[in-house]
Structures are given as structure tokens and as C-alpha cells.
Design a protein around this nucleic acid. Structure first.
Length: 538
RNA sequence: AGCCUCAUAGUGUAAUGGUAACACACCGGAUUUUGAUUCCGUAUUUCUAGGUUCGAGUCCUAGUGAGGCUGCCA
């Protein structure tokens, strides 16, 4: 529809295709299964899968790969949720589902290759010593006493590591590069460590595991990824990425390109902090509708198309900014406005009695399900003598810009007749208990008669035919624009009103609705987003 | 402090070296049987200083500001 938006990454790709550097494009989305996917991941997902889709004519594709090289942090529960979330967002990896842990033998062979070429050595310093001798931002590092071992000795020791001959921390394999490099990543980075933990995929087959910096370029090369797209914090690691590709026997030469993360105002997006919210019970779980996770968004009723559109609009750059959530909220409203069926509900009810309406008589009123979409059809609701309306749709002493009910004022019962307020009752505390009115016959489906001012249409639910239901209203989880910067920590700025449960009166058609189903609440309108609309096949 | 990266309305982005623009937000108005939607309109922008050029948001130099990097995490 819109003009295809491009960015520096897509430009590089278009160029690589036109110069013949690559015949097709292969990208990958490589999450570590140590938590649920969140809104921030949406950018990487849309970018990688989007590029594959855009270049489908050349046979392009995008792999889903679980980057599971640390057995201590990863769980199967997370791999399942990640798969579900990527699908929900609308993307398909087809046959291309991989695990970094499936290539453990390959990384091992590459490490042996490095050792044989004098480019890696077994270091028996303690973690402490390694840290100290790495130097600092301004001070160059010092070589390890084990740096110049013979190839034979290194080979033997590395085999011993694999065989379980070293305890955790007793030995690591290091790349032999440059302890004086201004880039600390290049000061003989550790590429293998001993971890006697059970891996979710490989069980106890291994007790040594490759580090991300070593494994990732090899994973990419193994899968013949052409463009390895990642976030800015890996920029400093690129020289080592290239070093690994240069010095290992790899079948392809992928290129790493970095882009900025997606951040939102009022939103905490670090997995560790989200896990804290779950563990401390501030939310019901990773998929609580208030969570910024993709599964939370799904339960909240956020259409995946809105998230995709947001990603398209915010684009890809290297500038690390914070996107105003208002941009996301607009896309949600925009999409829901065109697709969500409308229903009437009264959250804080007060009774309205239509005094000139006959007792025990109901009229079936036809309402359109979505004024933006005639194909959505219509439904019927019953109008009776007594209906519930929203308490704040009536004011005893209305100010100038108030268009709803007040003494002698007219308002339309949405989809039905215009009524005129004729009186009201109050209890001892001065609280309005009931409002009385008269309806104007003949005003259903037609404009207000001459001389009658009626500018608003309010929600109503028949007191006899309506249904009382529990409705949950969700609001922002945090009150601070930047929860991370809050003085008492992000937990101190949690919004106590982020979840409100109210007894509301709703149309009978909403009777079976699960409490989690979302209501987009506008001043006088409710969008009801049916979860089933957003989960294909569910 | 050393290295790497970035800098365009309040926010996110766009502009073969050639009149700075779009979306959101904001404010004002019109329409409206959702105070929604829709439609019009107002206001606000190239970090600073030099340089190259007929002409610089774009190229060069310096400065400033922001982010990242001293895990046996990814």
C-alpha cells in the first residue's frame, strides 16, 4: 500500500543482490530461550522476517534459531513461548527451525582448528586472574603465563576439558589475538568454558560450552546466513565476529550489521526486570495483559498488525532513542477502529427510568457491529423501561461543554431514541440513585426534531435483559516515563491502578466473555477486541 | 580516561550536494446517532564553530552531547 520504506540495511542488501555478491538473502532471528519475547524483540523479528518476505522472489528466507549456548539460563518453556509469539506476530520460519546447540560438534572442531594454527590456547588462570590481566579501558592487558603453550599441549588440554578433566573455572579456551588491543573484546577472548550443567537440548553430552562471541558467527556461517542483523551493543564485537569467520573453516562468510533497539516510554523491557515483576508477584505472569511481552500484548487484545505497522513506521537506524508509546497506541487504535466489533457496556451504572415507556415491554434495537466496516453486520439489543447508564453521563449542574444528560437536557440512547431528562432521585448522602426521563417517539433512526438539542449518544444496557459481568480494565503498568531511572527502582513506580476489576452491565452478547478480553475504552465508546480474532486457528 | 557508534520539530523517522518533509503528540476549527472516526488548519526542526562549494542537514576538521565496551551472559 504505502511506498516501501527503506533503510541502511535494506540498501546494503539491495546492493549485494544487484552486484551479484549474493544470489539470495538468508537472515535469522536468534533469541536465547531464557525469557519471553517482548515488544522490543518485535523490531528484530519484523526486520529479519520482513527482509526475507520482501526478497522471496530470489528464494530468500529467515531462520528461527535458538541461541542456547548457556545451559544454566535456558528452559524449554521459553522455546515454546517464543515459537508461539513469532507465529502470533505473523511470521513463519517454515522448515528452518534450528538450535545453536545442534552445532556443538562443529564449534568444537573449529576450536581444534584454531589451536592447531596457534590461534587458541588453554588458560588455567582463575577467573579473577583473567579479569585482572585483561587490563582496563586505558591500560593494555598482560599476556597469560599459559599463552605460549605448544599446540600439542593445548590439544591435549582441550580434549581433557571436553572429557570432564577440569572443574568449572579451572580452565578455559582463549582465542590468541592481541592483549594490547584498544578493543577489549579482542584481548584474547574466552571462547570455551567448563559448565557441568544439564542442557535443555543436549542433556549431559557436554561439559564445555562455547561463548556467544565464538558460537554466533559459526552458527551464522553454518546456516549460510548472508546478513546477520543484531542490535547496537554488539557493534564492538564485530571485529571478533570477522576474526572467527576469517580463521575458522566455515562454509560461508556472513556479515554482521547492527541497528538500534526498540524502546518505549513508560516501559521496562529488560528480561531480568520483567522476571522480577513475575517473581515478586506484581503481575500474574509473563503473559499478564499489562506486561510488555508479546504474549501479554496478545492477551491485552493488541492486534499483531499494529505492532508490525509500528515497526515499519519507526524504521531501522543506528540512533538509539526512546519511542513514545503514543506511536504504538495510535497504531492499536487505528487497527481496532477498523476491525473491532463494538459493544455497549456500563461500568459504573446508575438506573435510568423511561417514564413514558410501557412496563414489561421490550423493543429490539438493531445496532451495527462496526460503523467502519459494514460487512461486520448488525446485532439486536433490547430496549426496556429501565436501563443502566454510566453515572458520569449525568450531571445535576452541567458545565458549558457538557453535552450529555442534565436537567431538561436531551441525549440519545445509542442506536435508539432521544430521551429528555425529567428528574432524578438522591439518597441521604446526596448520591444520585436514579434518573427519570421521557423518550421522544419517532426519534429512532432519525435526527432530533426541530427545537431539540441533542449532541451526544450514550451507552445503555437494559436493566432487565442486560447481564452483569466482571470486567477488567488495564492501564499502564508504570507511572514514570522512564521507570528504569526511578529513584527507588522500577518497582517503585508501578501503577497501583494498572488493573481494575469492576462489576459492569453489558450486552447479553458479551456474557461469556473471558475477563481478559480487552475493552478499548474511549469517552463514550468501547471497542471490544475478541482474542479469537487475533489468533489464527484458535 | 582509551576505543567504537550516533546527533534533523516534544517523540520516531525522510530528504542523487539544490525550496527541510511525513507520522504521532499538541493546539484550533468543521462534520458526526461512539466527545471515536473522518476532514481542514496553526505552531515548532538540521548540536556548536570553522572549512570546501555558486550552493551543505548531507562532504572535511575540531569541539560538544548521548549510548556502548573492562562476564568463564547473550
Amino acid at each position: 500500500m504505502d511506498a516501501p520504506k527503506t533503510d541502511f540495511i535494506r540498501e546494503i542488501i539491495a546492493n549485494d543482490l544487484s552486484t551479484g555478491k549474493h544470489a539470495t538473502i538468508i537472515t535469522r532471528f536468534p533469541p536465547e530461550p531464557n525469557g519471553y519475547l517482548h515488544l522490543g524483540h518485535a523490531r528484530a523479528i519484523c526486520l529479519n522476517f520482513g527482509i526475507a518476505l520482501e526478497n522471496a522472489a530470489t528464494g530468500a528466507r529467515c531462520h528461527l534459531r535458538f541461541d542456547d549456548t548457556n545451559p544454566e539460563k535456558e528452559e524449554t518453556e521459553y522455546v515454546e513461548s517464543i515459537k508461539a509469539d513469532v507465529k502470533w506476530l505473523g511470521f513463519d520460519w517454515g522448515e528452518h527451525l534450528y538450535f545453536a546447540s545442534d552445532y556443538f560438534e562443529f564449534y568444537y572442531d573449529c576450536a581444534v582448528h584454531l589451536i592447531k594454527n596457534g590461534l587458541a590456547y588453554v588458560d588455567e588462570q582463575t577467573a579473577e586472574q583473567i579479569k585482572e590481566t585483561r587490563g582496563s579501558l586505558t591500560v593494555p592487558g598482560k599476556p597469560s603465563p599459559w599463552r605460549d603453550r605448544s599446540v600439542e599441549e593445548n590439544l591435549e588440554l582441550f580434549a581433557k576439558m571436553r572429557a570432564g578433566g577440569f572443574e568449572e573455572g579451572a580452565a578455559v579456551l582463549r582465542a590468541r589475538i592481541d592483549m594490547a588491543s584498544p578493543n577489549i573484546v579482542m584481548r584474547d577472548p574466552v571462547i570455551y568454558r567448563v559448565l557441568k550443567a544439564t542442557h535443555h537440548n543436549t542433556g549431559d553430552a557436554w561439559c564445555i560450552y562455547p561463548m556467544y562471541d565464538f558460537a554466533h558467527p559459526l552458527e551464522d556461517a553454518k546456516e549460510r546466513i548472508t546478513h546477520s542483523l543484531c542490535t547496537l551493543e554488539f557493534e564492538i564485537h564485530r571485529p571478533f565476529y570477522d576474526w572467527v569467520i576469517e580463521h575458522c573453516p566455515v562454509p560461508a562468510r556472513p556479515r554482521q550489521i547492527e541497528f538500534s533497539r526498540l524502546n518505549f516510554t513508560y516501559t521496562v523491557m529488560s528480561k531480568r526486570k520483567l522476571l522480577t515483576l513475575v517473581k515478586q508477584g506484581h503481575v500474574a505472569g509473563w503473559d499478564d495483559p499489562r506486561m510488555p511481552t508479546l504474549s501479554g500484548a496478545r492477551r491485552r487484545g493488541i492486534p499483531p498488525a499494529a505492532i508490525r505497522r509500528l515497526c515499519e513506521k519507526t524504521g531501522i537506524t543506528k540512533y538509539q532513542g526512546v519511542t513514545d508509546v503514543a506511536l504504538l497506541e495510535f497504531e492499536i487504535r487505528d487497527h481496532l477502529n477498523k476491525t473491532a466489533p463494538r459493544r455497549m457496556a456500563v461500568l459504573d451504572p446508575v438506573k435510568l427510568v423511561i417514564e413514558n415507556w410501557p412496563e414489561r415491554t421490550a423493543e429490539e434495537i438493531e445496532l451495527v457491529n462496526n460503523p467502519e466496516d459494514p460487512a461486520a453486520g448488525t446485532r439486536h439489543v433490547s430496549l426496556t423501561r429501565e436501563v443502566w447508564i454510566e453515572r458520569d453521563d449525568f450531571m445535576e449542574d452541567p458545565p458549558k461543554k457538557f453535552y450529555r444528560l442534565g436537567p431538561d437536557r436531551h441525549v440519545r440512547l445509542r442506536g435508539g431514541y432521544i430521551v429528555k431528562c425529567t428528574g432524578w432521585g438522591k439518597d441521604a448522602d446526596g448520591r444520585v440513585t436514579e434518573i427519570r426521563c421521557e423518550y421522544l417517539p419517532g426519534t429512532k433512526g432519525s435526527d432530533a426534531p426541530e427545537g431539540v438539542q441533542c449532541r451526544a449518544a450514550i451507552h445503555w444496557v437494559s436493566a432487565e435483559r442486560g447481564v452483569e459481568a466482571e470486567v477488567r480494565l488495564y492501564d499502564r503498568l508504570f507511572t514514570a516515563e522512564d521507570p528504569d531511572a526511578a529513584e527507588g527502582g522500577f518497582v517503585s513506580v508501578l501503577n497501583p491502578d494498572s488493573l481494575k476489576t469492576v462489576r459492569a452491565w453489558v450486552e447479553p452478547s458479551l456474557a461469556g466473555v473471558e475477563p481478559e478480553w480487552a475493552c478499548q475504552f474511549e469517552r463514550l465508546g468501547y471497542f471490544v477486541a475478541d482474542r479469537r480474532d487475533h489468533i489464527p486457528g484458535e
